[in-house]
């Protein structure tokens, strides 16, 4: 398949050159402009924040276990949300919407239990504790409120997986996370289209390069934490 690829010799030299001195490289990035800097930062992830002050809270752990616990925490939150939606459906749901939420509730419960099982049976660790959701800010009696919150959770979930996938060191876990985020993205697109038809991959979520949003664990928990009674600490996730 790759036999028809020909190296372009003239470019080799550019790539083979040793890096300039660290300070020059550093200067280049410092002056490369805000947009370029932001892009590079997104690409680099957040693996080496050395100035983190301990923020307290329940530690999600480190390495792959940390990533799995992080995903487990988010799936606990989503599963609890949809379980509540199904338990106390909004009076103004339209035809078919409760049936839809019932299926999504099953997906999220399966995702939650999948991570618990992966942590227990495969990683051989004690999983993160059961979290207590705090949904006091959500009006479950109103369709608009439920759809809006569901969309926010699903988009956040997609961005969380997209940001955390590269922190995983075990390829099998990466593929499993991909199988799940793919379904989360389907949920997100469905809810977006219910709220605003045609907004399934709108500019607020997919950037000008056609890339879905990716967020670091700290960025995600800053938003999700509002709905969780316990305080979670993702400082060492993926490290």
């Amino acid at each position: 398949m790759s036999d028809n690829l020909q190296p372009r010799g003239s470019d080799d030299a550019t790539f083979a050159q040793p890096l300039y001195t660290p300070i020059k490289r550093r200067s280049f990035f410092m002056y490369a402009g805000a947009t370029a800097g932001a892009t590079a930062l997104v690409l680099a992830g957040c693996s080496k924040d050395s100035d983190n002050t301990p923020s307290g809270g329940i530690s999600l752990g480190s390495g792959d276990v940390g990533v799995l616990n992080y995903a487990y925490a988010l799936e606990q939150l989503e599963a609890a949300f949809y379980a509540q939606v199904v338990k106390t459906p909004a009076a103004d749901f339209k035809a078919g919407e409760l049936a839809y939420f019932t299926q999504v509730a099953a997906h999220e419960a399966i995702h939650r239990d999948f991570f618990k099982a992966a942590l227990t049976n495969v990683a051989k660790v004690t999983p993160l504790q059961d979290l207590t959701p705090n949904f006091s800010s959500i009006d479950f009696t109103k369709r608009d409120s439920v759809l809006g919150t569901g969309k926010a959770f699903e988009d956040l979930g997609v961005a969380a997986y997209n940001g955390a996938g590269k922190l995983l060191k075990t390829p099998d876990f990466l593929v499993l996370a991909g199988k799940i985020v793919s379904v989360e993205a389907r949920h997100a697109a469905f809810l977006r289209d219910l709220i605003t038809p045609g907004s399934f991959a709108a500019d607020d979520q997919v950037d000008a390069n056609g890339l879905d949003k990716a967020m670091t664990p700290a960025e995600v928990l800053a938003i999700a934490g509002k709905y969780i009674t316990q305080t979670l600490n993702a400082d060492n996730v993926g490290k």
């Binding site: 997609v158 997986y161 997209n162 996938g165 590269k166 991909g178 985020v181 793919s182 379904v183 989360e184 993205a185 389907r186 949920h187 997100a188 697109a189 469905f190 289209d193 399934f200 991959a201 997919v206 056609g210 890339l211 879905d212 949003k213 990716a214």
Partner: peptide, 13 residues
Amino acid sequence: LRMQSVEARHASH
């Protein structure tokens, strides 16, 4: 990863 989830959004739509 970020392209994959966009494909899933398209499929859902």
